[in-house]
Amino acid sequence: MAGTGMFPLILGILLMFLSCIFLLKLLYQHKKTTTKRDSGGEVRRSPVQLILFFGTMVLATAFFDKLGYPLASFLLLAALLRTLGMKQWTLNILLSLMTAAASYFLFVHWLQIPLPKGFIGL
């Protein structure tokens, strides 16, 4: 009767059905508006900054356990600030160091969250 797979199966069928309607709708609209294609007035942004920003987050997650929370958060902040255009390294490092230290004391010492210690053992 109603087994494990039934509910997901119904959902899958529904999604396929809706996608078909969506496609048909797009084709229909496309036919009508083919003449004025790609006029989109907004300025295209280079995705480099976005990719660097997201990539930094991915790297920080990948080495989250190994580096330990204090070090990972410091490196993450420094790199993110740099990608967003913080050009002065001294200010950047000072800011990252202070924030990482503050969040370390807040989360690890005050709120007692067991965050990874990593190789530096903090």
Binding site: Y69, L76, L77, L80, T99, S103, I113, L115
Partner: peptide, 25 residues
Amino acid sequence: KILLPLVILFCITGMYSVNNSVFDI
């Protein structure tokens, strides 16, 4: 540009502390 990295750090820390798992991040 200073607030956004802070928000990211909060999100990662908060996410980890739900189940103490990197998988969740």
